[in-house]
Structures are given as C-alpha cells and as structure tokens.
C-alpha cells in the first residue's frame, strides 16, 4: 500500500481509511482465483449470469473483509455488525461498482472487478432490459460524480458513511455508531472545504449522490429478487441470502 502522509486539511479519519483500503490487484487476483475454481454442485462452465452472481458474492466478501478491519466497526459486537451490513450491503456493492467506473474513465464500457471490460453495446444486447437499465442508471451517477471530481479521499469517507448509515433504534451500541457518523461527516466537510474551496457545496452534492446510490441499490435488489423468483439465481448465493434475511 502507498504510504499516506497527513498535511493541512487532511483529517486523521481519512488517512486511516486510506490505509485500510484493500489493494485492488489483490482483490482482483483473489476473485479471479475463486471464479476459476469449480464449485461444488455447480457446472464446470457456469453461464455468464452465474459467473456474475459469484463475482458479486466474492466482491461482497471483500467488502465484509474491509468492514471487519474498519475502526469502530471492529469494536462492535457481531449482532450490530450484521445489522449494519444488512442495512447497507447493496449500497456498498453499488458504490464499489460506481467508483471502479470512475477510475476506469470510459463512457462506452464498464470495468468488472475481475479486470474484464464489457462494452455497453454488449450489455444492451445480452443482459436483458432490467440489468441494462440498471447499468445505464449507474453510468449516469458515474458521470455525475466524475463531474464533481470525486477523489479517493472522499470515496473512502463516503463508503464509511454508508457503512454506518443506520438509525439508533436498530443497534445495541448506537453511541459508537453515532460517533462514527459524526466524525465521518466532519472529516468529509473539512476535507472538501479545504481541498475544493472553489466548490463550496461539494459536501452537500456528495451526500446527495448517496441518495441516488440508495435508489440504485433498491433497484438492484428488485432485479435480484426478480431473478430469484425466476429460479435463475445459483444455489447458496450470498446476495440472495442477504436479500431474504429478516430486515431490521
């Protein structure tokens, strides 16, 4: 990992979060390795949709790994950790996808966590209308965040905010979670004011984008449920388990 140094306008929380960021190459190698393993009870060469489902499962496992290493989250009991992740799992996956596309920087294709590039024309031709519309809606948010010049520091802070975005009544130890929310909000505000003084409302604009991340994640869950009802999801799928888990 790159060393990160502090400096004026660089909140300590953001520095710590940068150090916790998983190495994209290592994540890619792990997921590619998993996808190449023939899984029990699954055909040797699963259909592209089955591969996408396993890819999403493995991406979520990387997100859980990240959360477990996060300050505050690692201090919580497992019940609260589960409650937080059950609340935001789909948003974290959507935001992970969005940020990968911002780094990818191409409007006519998407980059998968495995490093594969898929042309949007291919998505239009092969993915079905529901998935295609999801991908296009996500691409609109990518453009919006690109125009806002979302940087890595803001990305890690927003991801942390998503993880802790839950009301107290659902948690056993809300005081820790509330403290994390307040620190992350303050860090993001300080950072944006200091590094983007010409864009006075960047903080508010970024928070507004989280509303769209939530809306996208709802649409993604509806899509998953639709596939589940059509018996198209692989067995033992982690995302379907998350979808079916009793909500708080």
């Amino acid at each position: 990992p790159e060393p990160f140094s502090g400096g004026p306008g660089m909140p300590e929380l953001i520095l710590q979060l940068l150090q916790l960021e998983p190495d994209e190459d290592q994540v890619r190698a792990r997921i590619v390795g998993c996808l190449q393993e023939p899984a029990k009870g699954r055909p040797d060469q699963p259909a592209p949709f089955g591969l996408l489902c396993r890819m999403a499962d493995q991406t979520f496992i990387s997100i859980v790994d990240w959360a477990r290493r996060c300050m505050v989250f690692k201090e919580l009991e497992v019940a609260d950790q589960m409650t937080l992740l059950q609340n935001c799992w789909s948003e974290l996956l959507v935001f992970d996808h969005i940020y990968r596309q911002i780094q990818h920087g191409k409007e006519d294709s998407i980059l998968l966590v495995t490093g594969q590039e898929v042309e949007l024309t291919t998505v239009a031709a092969q993915a079905g209308s529901l998935l295609h519309s999801l991908v296009l809606r996500a691409q609109e948010l990518v453009l919006q965040l690109h125009a806002l010049q979302l940087d890595r520091q803001e990305f890690v802070c927003l991801k942390f905010l998503i993880l802790f975005s839950l009301d107290g009544k659902f948690l056993n130890n809300y005081s820790l979670v509330k403290d994390a929310q307040e620190k992350a909000n303050a860090a993001l505000l300080d950072y944006t004011l200091c590094h983007y003084p010409h864009c006075g409302d960047k903080f508010q604009q970024l928070l507004l984008c989280l509303v769209e991340v939530r809306a996208l994640s709802m649409q993604a869950k509806e899509y998953l449920y639709h596939k589940h009802l059509g018996n198209e999801m692989p067995r033992n799928n982690l995302l379907i388990e998350m979808l079916q888990a009793k909500q708080t």
Partner: peptide, 26 residues
C-alpha cells in the same frame, strides 16, 4: 432490538464471527 436467529444470514454470520475459523465456501 436486533433480528433473531431465524432471519439471520448464515453466510454473513460465518464471515463475521471470528470463532468459526475457516471461511465458508461461497
């Protein structure tokens, strides 16, 4: 206030619970 065991996602629980040791195969 949190969800009971009936609605608990088992794979997530296994991923989060350090006492379970080995990771589940997903």
């Amino acid at each position: 206030p949190c969800q009971g065991a009936a609605g608990r996602p088992a794979i997530l629980y296994a991923l989060l619970s350090p006492s379970l040791g080995a990771r589940p195969s997903v």
